[in-house]
Design a protein around this nucleic acid. Sequence first.
DNA 1: TTAACTGTATTATTAATAATAGTACAGTTG
DNA 2: CAACTGTACTATTATTAATAATACAGTTAA
Lengths: 128, 128
Amino acid sequence: MFELDVRSRRPIYEQLTDKIKELILYGILRSDEQLPSVRTLSAQLTVNPNTIQKAYRELEREGYIYSRPGKGSFVSPAQQGTNAAKRAEVRDELLRLMAEAVYLGFTESEISVLFKQASEQKGEEDQP
Amino acid sequence: MFELDVRSRRPIYEQLTDKIKELILYGILRSDEQLPSVRTLSAQLTVNPNTIQKAYRELEREGYIYSRPGKGSFVSPAQQGTNAAKRAEVRDELLRLMAEAVYLGFTESEISVLFKQASEQKGEEDQP
DNA sequence: TTAACTGTATTATTAATAATAGTACAGTTG
DNA sequence: CAACTGTACTATTATTAATAATACAGTTAA
């Protein structure tokens, strides 16, 4: 379900929250869908349960999931399919990066070419 | 000369190397120009000298600067003005980010708008 | 020549924090 | 009741950036 880089500088729990957020925002995890239990995921990823719990706690704090003691953790309906947040995020990053690109003399046509490349890339691997 | 975020997760020495690399690649630091001495910069940034030294050592290892015991540390002529490396780097990042943008439904015209915004931005703050 | 700079090297210590380990408690479900 | 769930807490380990404290040698200018 996930790939983690245990020797990354990014903490494991943070890698986890980000991946799960993406799955939710992209709608891959659906509303009220149950997430793996803390202990199950811990075993799957061979990571300490406390690390998983920390990720889940953070996700709940941010409203991405809700947890019911004794039942499990589930995707929060409010967030599902909300690409808006992700879009804004990507937009900001793009703006920052393009400012640099401008500095380095990138032209608009170069940018267009890059965008086309990115489009083709997606076309190949997606949509079976 | 620099702004550091001492509470960033990015190590200080790494923030330093990156900033200096940029100054060199953008040609702001010229060939054979002398960098601040380890101790001077250490005092200016209120950072331990060893941290500065670590950054300088890394920069020398990567060929950005050369150091002469007793004299100082200087910009390596080979690297000055070499935007090629930086361009390639930014290009890669852009491609990766645009792939995500495509996923999120960004259109080419949206991208163009972003590029224009970035261009204007630069125009304002640069070139007096 | 000497004082005050330079870079370089080394060792030890501190600080911060992610991750682990272990245990406990309570709700849910079959 | 047994086996799951989430939650909470404390303690410990491991990693690593940063600091501290010296020491040595080359350069330079007064």
